[in-house]
Amino acid sequence: MLIKKPDAIRPSELTPEPVYLNRRQFMLGSAGVLLSAEALAASPFSTREKENSWQEITHYNNYYEFGTDKSDPGENAGSLKVRPWQIAVDGEVAHPRHYGIEELLRFAQEERIYRLRCVEGWSMVIPWTGFPLASLLKQVQPTARARYVAFETLLRPSEMPGQREHTLAWPYREGLRIDEAMNPLTLLATGLYGKPLPNQNGAPIRLVVPWKYGFKSIKSIVRIHLMETLPATSWNLANPAEYGFYSNVNPAVDHPRWSQATERRIGEFFKRPTLPFNGYAEQVAALYRGMDLRKNY
């Protein structure tokens, strides 16, 4: 089993990056860890680009529930209790039910090294561990009327100081079309760098949709609701002219206030061109065939 119980020692102390970067070799070289080696086998969906460091990924991100500065989540998320935890899966499904986090961790976990492009114009490469959202949805069997999937973050102002401010309509909400949700790239992430997901990155379980801007990848999920109509989403509610339901990474469609043509990969000096669908066009462009992506931003 990949995921261990969280402990007091910081994961960065446990696994120095060079050791981590050699993990595949290490696992293949040791006896009796066949399962882990199999679980960590490079996914065909993983990029071979240089991963951002643990420090960068865990100390520079947006998670407005803990503050609006990108250093706030790393500073304030320690107070969040992520056990016990469960997700309600309901709505247009044959078998609505609750999943405890322990059960979710029993889904076959795999590593996915994905690019993440923030709508603000920066990007990272992040080694997540998790399982396809499709595996979960197949278990509850969406009905024929399930056209969309809505997600909700935990609402707990006592542990999430940002929720005491009226920055966004809490709880944070996101949504996908059912075919987007069933796409094999769409991941429920439970870990980072082979360790349990740190609180500031959306512990204990979050969505990762790598071809969409980062805010679509909702964190600390407590509810997954399948429905027939388009779900309301937080940033769209906050500013519909700037944040659409789809929010696919698209260098050709600018944010009204800034260009999306280029991005700064954290750790790099020069900006790089942003790729359509964040470089995942091969896997997902077909989902939007015939759609006007300028209108459906």
């Binding site: 960068e56 920066w122 700064r264």
Partner: peptide, 11 residues
């Protein structure tokens, strides 16, 4: 910016 405390020093 130089010490690496700022993760996105240019921003």
């Amino acid at each position: 910016a130089a010490s690496g405390d700022a993760i996105n020093p240019i921003e």
